[in-house]
Structures are given as C-alpha cells and as structure tokens.
Amino acid sequence: MKMIHAEKLVYEYDKRDEEGNVIGTNRAIDGVDIDVPQGSFVAVLGHNGSGKSTLAKHMNAILVPTGGTMWVDGRDTRDPAELWNVRQTAGMVFQNPDNQIIGTVVEEDVGFGPENLGVPTDEIWKRVEDSLRSVGMLEYRKSSPNKLSGGQKQRVAIAGVIAMEPKCIVLDEPTAMLDPNGRREVIRAVEKLRKEKNVTVILITHYMEEVIDADQVFVMDDGHIVMHGTPREIFSRVDELKSYRMDVPQVTMLAEELRKRGLDLPRGILRREELVEALCRLR
C-alpha cells in the first residue's frame, strides 16, 4: 500500500522583477517520482533551495502540482473535494515552533486540529491526552506555549498533528531552529511515535544524523531527486553527497578518510559503534 505516491511531479512559480512583472518561471520541483509505502520512515535530504520543503508542502495539499500528480493515500491532491481528507491523512509539522502553535494553552493547541475535524468533545479530550502522553508533554498540558523550550514546543506541535490521527506525518525541517538538545528530543519523540502508532513518517531535514534510522533516503538537488536508497547506500557515496553540498555524519566521514588512506573498512559506516567494531576487526 502506497501512502505517498508522486509521478513526474512539477511545481513552477513565476519569477518576478521588482515591479512585479513576470520575467520567467522557476521550477522548484522538476519531474520528481517518489514512493512511500505505508508505515515506513522516509527521509528527504537537501541543502537550502533544493526543493525539499516545496515537495513536503505538496504532501499536505498546501501546494498543488503544476504538472504531474501527487497521490496521498490514493487521493489526488488536486481534487478540491478531497482537500480536507488529504490534510487529515497527512499531518504536517513545520520548521518554526512559534508560528504553528495556535492555542495559548498547550492542551487547547493540541485540541485545535480535532476541533476543526468536528470530533465530539469527549473524544477530543481523549485524543489530546493520548497524543500529549505519546510525545511526553502531558505534564505541561496546562502551561503556556511561550514558557516552553524550542524542543518542547515542537513536540507540542507534533502532538497537535497526532491528535488528528493522521496515517502519515510530514515533518518539514522540524529541528532546523532547535539546539542539539531540542533536536534530540524531537527525533526521539518521532521515533517513539513511529513504533507505537505505526504511522508513516516523512522527515525533511538537512541533518544527516537524523536519517540513519530511515528505511529510505531521498536526496534532492535543484528540484530533482538525485540519490535514492537506504541510508547505508547513500552514505557510502561520500563524494557524490559532497557534490550536492551535503555534509556526511562525522563518523562516516572519518571512516571514509581512513579507507582512502588504505585501511580496510567497509563503506557506509553510520554509527560510532560500527566504526569501533570495524576498526577492532582490522587487527
């Protein structure tokens, strides 16, 4: 079963000069094919301006393709009749934690989505409690979002999406504005969700460390998908990654450098433990 499926997806927007006259078109996404099976964890990598956020916005029907088709759980995102179903199926978490929290109390914010869906009151409370618990924010339910740290705010935003019971969560650079601690918090929350609720997770990011547990990794550059494979496959192609202005996790980098100097190490080492093990095996 395909959760997200795109065929020859194209998104163009008008380029304008200072007076607002159209002087051409920009292709943010250019012929992207993507396939995400249900229940999997997919990461999309790319540096700034690679089109990865634009792609994410297509999964939630915030943007509709100008060419090609995007299906979310079998629904064409261009069909206006399916718009709200698509948005309920694929929940979206954005980059800036402050700009996506609507409520002034944590629990009210989490309840915002279900309220919009017309869920009965008792059910809303149950869902709010459940989703706050699953991101570990239940004890903050009565607090004001302004008093939370970035990582906590982002977890509340995730809970807000979970409360809508989506089949799929799209996280559009959820950690870009967080410190390392907040980043770890958020990634851990996402992992836990994936295991407990079996939701499909699509993580858009430019932090390599966050994608090593993914089932599939897509690398985007200039609107195209340029690399696709398991994290191990992707990270074994260090030079290619670098040509797309991507950094490689430090451990992988170190292993690669050592390999180039003649040490007999396997390609695509992702974790520190793996490197240690491989190094020990050398003797």
Partner: peptide
C-alpha cells in the same frame, strides 16, 4: 506561516 499551519490542520 501561521495561516499555513492552520490550514494544514484542517482549519476551515
């Protein structure tokens, strides 16, 4: 951003 986030959460 907020308008987008609200729409993404099915605000209608």
């Amino acid at each position: 951003d907020l308008a987008m986030a609200m729409e993404a959460r099915c605000y209608n």
